[in-house]
Design a protein around this nucleic acid. Structure first.
Length: 552
RNA sequence: GCGCCCGUAGCUCAAUGGAUAGAGCAUCAGCCUUCUAAGCUGAGGGUUACUGGUUCGAGUCCAGUCGGGCGCACCA
């Protein structure tokens, strides 16, 4: 709809002789009495030109030229808003688009020919996924889905490191538990991984090798076994939520020399060195962030000779440019908040276009059980596992609860609520609307032989003019703009809210307008409206990754 | 101490700088001889943490204060 209004308004502003730098924006007034759409361009131009906004609005209006039968009324309201009222005919006529485009309704072409990479989850294989990771995983997955709707060629990437110190400690942890199984008495340090899964992996090694490795100092076998078991567990958990990555990027490749004998990490040091942002002191190699106004330089290569995490991070992001991505999205939790500014700075220095990078940071998750807040903790054995949560509330509720709050809000995951098979649970409210429509359409086929495909006389929609019908139809037209808004803000929550309000409008329509009992043409028209609603619900559910049950 | 996020109805949360700050849950009052009542209609409930500032207009932007969360390693 924005695309419908913007050019007309732009032409009218120009025709009225108003020259303004301000972008024209369309908004939907909260209150329908101010119209279906409205623009504040007169305010913006008035400020710039030092004129009266109401007068400017009056000058613009005569030049607004819309196709016939689309706009019922245009008026100046308040101090200078221009409000537009659509005709019911235009709204219901537009709903036909939903039925024509079906699964592709809402898609756009702004990403056509562009490649986007969304990096999310990216947990190192040191343990099972926690609930906190789940939020980022679902957020990233939905964001990737949103990009895909606009025609982007999308790559979902998982970045991991199986060579660092944490992995070494993981191997050690398994080795110690293995030795316990061999009957040795071992001291298990607090710095090691405490979780029960370590014991399970040790048992696996013990089953395979017996006590033959009891004396070895080697940790690789323990580490590799652990990595393989943990990674497949992580992937299985993600799979349960419908999260599948296209690409797993191993940080280790950045440490591997290419044909010229240099590593990606080394090339970063060289390139930053050429820009005079590298300094060596205290036995380490530093990124001179003090030259950028920061308090301290940042270590890129430790005095041990190992790179710190920042160096491969920079090298990794350079690969995203080298691989030709037009849009680079990183999704991570609030604990990584300090990580990206240095990477961005380095990329800037190296001449990359950092405006291509979008960062989505999600705040932490607490779970509430019996009204008691339980704080998540990591690296201890007591971290809440994502798998347990999915067991408890199911994949749909897990996904929806993770994204039904803004990503900047601390999420309070009410486990009891998510489990409830009742009205308080928003998952059920959405599902119910869909199932109700399915049930209605089944009955329509049975009772009056309704088959939308054999006789697609969608134009019957134009017979509808009840306020409940018009409001529902209007909401359906809003869907494409809603996708764009969610994408622009990297915020799937907008979509959840939209679908909730759509479900609400449908229920009201269903309550107020008899469908099968109406006269035949009206009945068909209302069934088409229901069909269109189901289509938009489905399309939205697909973006959010929740199921669309046919019955409940 | 420094950086980022948050503070809105009893609870959980919305509100691209716009018009009378909205939903859900909870509470109260109605609606099933009629297509799924897992639904709908209505009511009550607010000094948007606080103090200033910016402007036609501030929950939103800026400064400061208070409160909560997360970071601030030659860990990732």
């Amino acid at each position: 709809m924005h695309e419908f209004f913007l050019p007309v308004i732009a032409r009218a502003v120009e025709a009225a002789g108003i020259v303004t730098e301000n972008p024209i924006r369309i908004e939907q007034p909260a209150d329908k009495k101010f119209g279906d759409f409205s623009t504040n361009i007169a305010f913006l131009a008035a400020k710039e030109l030092r004129k009266n906004p109401r007068e400017l609005a009056q000058q613009i209006i005569p030049h607004l030229s819309f196709p016939p039968d689309t706009i019922a009324k245009i008026e100046v309201a308040g101090a200078g808003f221009i409000n537009f009222y659509l005709t019911p005919l235009f709204i219901m006529q537009s709903v036909e688009q939903v039925l024509l485009y079906t699964d592709r309704y809402g898609e756009g072409a702004s990403g056509k020919g562009k490649r986007a990479i969304v990096e999310y989850v990216s947990a190192n294989p040191t343990g099972p996924l926690t609930i906190g990771r789940g939020r980022g995983g679902v957020l990233g997955d939905c964001i990737a889905n949103l990009f895909a709707t606009q025609g982007y060629d999308i790559t979902r990437e998982y970045y991991f490191n199986d060579a660092g110190r944490q992995m070494q400690i993981l191997g050690e942890s398994v080795k110690l538990r293995y030795r316990e199984l061999c009957g040795q008495i071992v001291e298990f340090p607090a710095t090691h991984y405490q979780g029960d899964y370590i014991r399970e992996i040790a048992e696996q090694v013990f089953n395979d090798h017996g006590a033959a490795l009891a004396g070895t100092e080697e940790v690789d076998l323990f580490k590799n076994t652990a990595e393989s078991i943990i990674f497949s567990a992580i992937r299985a958990t993600l799979e349960r939520l419908g999260i599948r990555h296209d690409s797993f990027f191993n940080e280790h490749t950045l440490y591997t020399p290419d044909e010229t004998g240099t590593t990606a990490n080394q090339r970063v040091i060289e390139a930053l060195g050429e820009k005079e942002f590298i300094s060596k002191y205290d036995g380490a190699t530093w990124f001179m962030t003090t030259k950028l106004g920061q308090e301290k330089d940042k270590v890129l290569i430790k005095s041990t000779g190992e790179p710190s995490y920042r160096l491969p991070d920079i090298a990794y992001h350079l690969t995203k440019y080298k691989r030709g991505f037009d849009v680079i999205v990183n999704v991570f939790g609030a604990d990584h908040i300090d990580e990206y500014p240095d990477v961005i700075e380095a990329l800037k220095i190296l001449g990359e276009d950092t405006s291509r990078i979008r960062i989505a940071i999600n705040q932490f998750v607490t779970t509430t059980v019996d009204g008691q807040s339980v704080k998540m903790s990591t690296r201890k054995g007591n971290a809440d596992l994502l798998d347990d949560l999915i067991d408890d509330v199911g994949a749909d509720a897990t996904r929806l609860f993770f994204i039904m709050r803004g990503k900047d809000s601390h999420l309070n995951f009410d486990v009891e609520l998510a489990k409830k098979q009742s009205r308080e649970n928003p998952v059920f409210y959405l599902h119910y609307a869909h199932a109700r429509i399915c049930s209605l359409l089944r009955l329509a086929k049975q009772e009056i032989g309704f088959d939308p495909h054999s006789d697609p006389d969608y134009h019957l929609l134009r017979l509808l003019d009840n306020p409940a019908e018009i409001q529902l139809g209007f909401a359906l037209l809003d869907y494409p703009d809603m996708i764009k808004t969610s994408l622009r803000l990297l915020e799937p929550q907008k979509m959840v809210e939209y679908l909730h309000s759509l479900a609400e409008l449908f229920h009201r329509f269903y309550q107020e307008c008899p469908i099968l009992k109406a006269e035949p043409e009206i009945a068909r028209a209302r069934l088409f409206l229901s069909l269109a609603t189901r289509q938009v619900l489905r399309n939205g559910f697909r973006i959010l990754g929740v199921s669309a049950p046919e019955s409940m």
